[in-house]
Design a protein around this nucleic acid. Structure first.
Length: 921
RNA sequence: GGGCCUAUAGCUCAGCUGUGGUUAGAGCGCACGCCUGAUAAGCGUGAGGUCGAUGGUUCAACUCCAUCUAGGCCCA
């Protein structure tokens, strides 16, 4: 018989090589077959609820690493809260309507809007969305994310669409909805509004002109402006100046006439170089804000304009006095709103001037009229200089023609009606923002945002339920109409608006409230998709039986401060006068290894599907866990390799423990806590400390701390000390000796607890581990989160002191190794010279000392009074005696036992008992 | 251009917050060594940082202030 066969060496079927990419789908299949999500629901039914409301990703394309990050984080929260005993259902959602699908589909179909019937197109869009929802669903599930995948919420569900209409109606009823004007990109050839994404920039040559606006009631005084879009002059209502910069009154002579021109002081010389021929003189300078409200006459229309102030005015080109036409530019528009200026846009769908621009311009194409406008200015002696300029200008993505910016009628939600903004700001203060500084951002953005433009001139979305009187063009927001539409849509979907005869929508005896006529037509615009998702708390949280309102948590990327967090809050404040979320967690964006944005053109995109295929979803999950989401997150091959290493460390530690408890039955073999050996007691206490710390970290959503704590515990507490020290006992002691069972009791406790601790993160691996723990039958996902037991500070202090001494001893042992005195540390005999106190401390550990130092013998001697310069003096020499072939310790007792001449006395003692041969023979 | 934010070893993170003060820490990786009874593992020792840059406040700054640089989100 080989003595080796009498040892209790680790034994487990838990593989060292994870092979996650193959194993995970099997685990997933198994979990799905047992319907784990439903089992979890059943288990926690009736418990306090925790609602994380999913922000819907857009149903287009494969999921990218940012979405994977977001969903994994949500899943970690859900899994943690569930294990903490909350009923935490997770209903994933998808954002289905809107531009990206429309854009993509038009591209695929190769047609323009006027070439396809809207309803037909909408059906295709719905199919398109469905296709990608299924695709993304599969991808999310593969990441180990649990949820109601068979019943997600879709913003294109009929009931959801109906709710959008109802909520719009409720807001309209309370007066939040109004009709106004706003400039949008407009292609005059396609006669359609364009979204930002449908605009492409290309170089264009335009006129570049300097115009003098006559100051009211002052002769020969002018405000000098510069523009490259002469056709927007008819819509001019103001001139913007920077409040802080200095403006000069420049005296000069133009065509022999003395005049005074107002412009920014810092622009004077540049303007003089291009526009002025003669000498000039600066009469005086004033600050821009001193010019505010100065009035001027429109160069050719009978209208008075005024000077307003704006921070965006720049001094690197032009005159520092900015021609402002709120109907033709975004900055201008916002300034117009701020100063309550008229928003003029005297241009029709075809890009022709209307009567409002003057009878001489009426009917003319705006681009073609540039020359005429320049002539007009010139004939009135208001054109100071004319030139050409090449600049980057927006063009239509489809017809490649230059587009214009044009104010069109739009529906808005007022942010200030009934003090909505103030109420929302107050609500923000009551919400818990994680990290806390994100509250600032939310606050600032809410403070500055304009009214919410709700209408979109698009095809794929929920129609705005408004009628127009065909006689007087009065827009009609009627609650009965809205009710009818909602009803219709809930049954037939939002297509109904476009398909159904108007009679089915109009209540009986309905007349135009303004003119009394009875003929109407339907609004063509659809609602902004941000409104779709902004009312998800109404359409989902309030409607689903297993959910509740408000949500406990919204968890999204930092772009959603302007997006979903804000639209949801505004909608909720308008509808409920209360926030729809109690807390909001924001994470950064996923960047490449250098912290740079990922982009296809740079070629630094990392695809979550590739990671899952190569390493496994748990690696991706561990990466999410390890990252500090408060800032931007990085990912690269290098980073992933480190994560794989960290994973391997955890896995191997687990494997070792599993191997050493394979013969342990927790029911029969467990040792009572007060009978554990001290090192085991200490370790058990350290475990409690870990449970406490990890629990606290989860509670604060500090996942990267969980990662560090678990990693350090495996490496420091377990692998490099406890497990290493335990080997001698586990392997060589009698199988069912109380000492071995004591250690196994704690090892079992450790594996059983850390598996649950890591479960929210390493979903697949923890399930795999759980299946290998003796006596664990159910899934780990039905286990509860550990509650920390008593932590013994006293033991921690005592053992920390021990560890400090050990560290010093290890250094000395290493020195001996370098001198080739020893190899294996068991070849060493350590002598520690120390003060009386320390000596007594060490003696307290008795025979455990050799175990702790993993040497064959430890001697302790007290310092004499004279030689106590050092705190501790450790000497290593080669152990005496011979090596026991069984336990490998060196001992003088080897050879003493006649029956077992190769063994030490301790092993011989063990052999006396009824040791079973462990080998299969 | 504006608002908000970030910058500590090769990597991931501590420390820094209205309270500045001994040689700035951990894990991983790396180098070297040991072991071969956790073995495509395990153990030990060690080398790595002018704390993004510059200037300032101070007896003293990674920590406070200013500017700059790089990067991010949002807006323009």
């Amino acid at each position: 018989m080989e003595y080796k066969d009498t040892l209790n060496l680790p034994k487990t079927s838990f593989k060292m090589k994870a092979n996650l990419s193959q194993k995970e789908p099997e685990i997933l299949k198994n979990l799905e077959e047992q319907n784990i999500y439903q089992k979890i629901r059943d288990k926690y039914k009736g418990k306090p609820s925790y609602i994380l409301h999913d922000g819907p990703p857009y149903a287009n394309g494969d999921i990218h690493v940012g979405q994977a990050f977001n969903k994994i984080m949500k899943d970690m929260v859900i899994k943690y809260k569930t294990m903490k005993g909350f009923d935490a259902p997770y209903v994933p959602g998808w954002d289905c309507h809107g531009l990206p699908i429309e854009y993509q589909l038009f591209k695929e179909l190769g047609v323009s809007r006027h070439q396809i019937d809207q309803v037909k197109f909408r059906k295709k869009a719905r199919n398109y969305a469905n296709k990608y929802i299924e695709r993304q669903k599969k991808e999310f599930k593969r990441l180990g994310i649990f949820g109601e995948w068979n019943k997600p919420y879709l913003t294109m569900d009929f009931n959801y669409e109906a709710e959008i209409i109802r909520d719009f109606g409720r807001l309209a009823k309370d007066g939040y909805i109004y009709k106004g004007k706003k400039p949008v990109y407009w292609c005059i050839k396609c006669e359609t509004a364009l979204a930002e994404a449908e605009v492409e920039y290309a170089d264009k040559t335009s006129p570049s002109i300097w115009i003098k606006f006559p100051v009211k009631n002052k002769s020969a005084a002018y405000i000098l402006i510069w523009t490259t879009t002469p056709w927007t002059i008819p819509a001019n209502v103001a001139v913007a100046v920077h409040p802080e910069f200095k403006y000069a009154f420049v005296k000069t002579s133009v065509n022999g006439t003395e005049q005074v021109l107002v412009m920014a002081e810092s622009r004077v010389s540049a303007v003089a170089d291009t526009c002025l021929s003669g000498k000039y003189e600066i009469l005086k300078t004033v600050k821009g804000k001193d010019l505010e409200n100065m009035e001027y006459r429109h160069p050719f229309l009978d209208r008075i304009g005024k000077v307003v102030i704006a921070d965006y005015v720049e001094m690197d080109e032009g005159t520092g006095c900015v021609h402002t036409a709120p109907g033709h530019g975004t900055d201008d528009y916002l300034t117009g709103i701020k100063f309550n200026l008229p928003i003029l846009s005297p241009v029709n769908n075809k890009g022709e001037f209307t009567e409002e621009a003057g009878s001489d311009l009426k009917g003319q194409n705006v681009f073609e009229s540039n020359a005429k406008i320049i002539d007009k200015l010139s004939s009135k002696n208001l054109l100071l200089h004319e030139d050409k300029a090449q600049h980057s200008y927006p063009h239509c993505w489809r017809c490649r023609e230059p587009v214009i910016f044009r104010a069109t009628p739009q529906w808005f939600m007022s942010v200030d009606k009934h003090k909505l903004r103030e109420r929302a700001l107050a609500a923000v203060k009551k919400v818990e923002w994680i990290p806390s500084r994100t509250m600032n951002r939310m606050d600032a953005m809410l403070m500055n945002r304009p009214d919410w433009c709700l209408s979109r001139q698009r095809y794929w979305g929920v129609a705005i339920p408004v009628l127009y009187c065909t006689s007087c063009e009065e827009p009609i927001l009627d609650q009965r109409v809205i009710g009818n539409v909602a009803e219709l849509v809930s049954v037939n979907g939002s297509d109904a608006w476009f398909e159904v005869d108007i009679e089915k929508i109009i209540p009986e005896n309905f007349t135009c409230p303004k003119c009394g006529k009875t003929s109407f037509e339907k609004e063509k615009d659809i609602i902004d998709v941000w409104f779709d998702s902004g009312v998800s708390h109404e359409a989902v949280l309030k409607k689903r039986e297993n959910l509740s309102w408000p949500a406990d948590l919204y968890l999204e990327g930092s772009d959603q401060h302007r997006g979903w967090f804000q639209t949801s809050l505004l909608a909720s404040m308008g509808l409920n006068n209360k926030s729809c979320y109690r807390s909001v967690l924001t994470h950064g964006f996923v960047m490449d290894g250098e912290g740079k944005k990922m982009s296809k053109s740079v070629g630094n995109v990392i695809d979550p599907q590739d990671i899952t295929a190569k390493y496994g979803a748990d690696i991706l999950r561990l990466w999410v866990c390890s990252s500090d989401y408060r800032d931007d997150i990085r990912i690269s091959d290098d980073i992933l390799r480190h994560i794989v290493d960290a994973y391997r460390r955890i896995r191997n530690t687990v494997r070792f423990i599993l191997g050493n408890i394979s013969d342990f039955n927790p029911v029969k073999d467990r040792i009572a806590h007060n009978e554990l050996t001290e090192i085991d007691k200490w370790m058990s206490s350290k475990l409690q400390e870990l449970i406490k710390n990890v629990g606290d970290a989860y509670e604060k959503f500090a996942f990267n701390k969980v990662y560090i704590l678990l990693g350090n515990f495996c490496a420091n507490e377990l692998s490099s000390f406890y497990l290493d020290v335990l080997k001698d006992r586990l392997y060589t002691a009698k199988k069912d000796s109380s000492q071995r069972r004591s250690s196994q009791t704690v090892l079992y406790e450790i594996i059983e607890n850390i598996t649950r601790l890591m479960c929210p993160v390493l979903a697949f691996t923890s399930e795999e581990i759980w299946k290998h723990i003796p006596e664990k039958k159910d899934s780990v996902f039905l286990a509860e989160f550990p509650i920390p037991g008593k932590i013994s500070k006293l033991l921690h202090q005592k053992w920390q002191k021990m560890l400090n001494i050990r560290e010093k001893a290890l250094k000395i042992i290493e020195e001996a190794r370098e001198k080739k005195l020893i190899g294996n540390s068991l070849e060493a005999e350590v002598t520690i010279h120390c003060a009386k106190e320390t000596a007594e401390f060490l003696e307290g550990f008795e025979e455990t000392l050799t175990l702790i130092f993993i040497v064959s013998k430890v001697n302790i001697t007290q310092f004499l009074k004279t030689d106590s310069k050092e705190e501790l003096k450790i000497v290593v020499k080669r152990a005496s005696g011979e090596k026991c072939v069984r336990c490998w310790n060196w001992s003088e007792s080897v050879g003493k036992n006649k029956q077992h001449p190769q063994l030490c006395s301790r092993c011989a003692e063990v052999m006396k008992g009824d040791i079973q041969c462990n080998s299969v023979c």
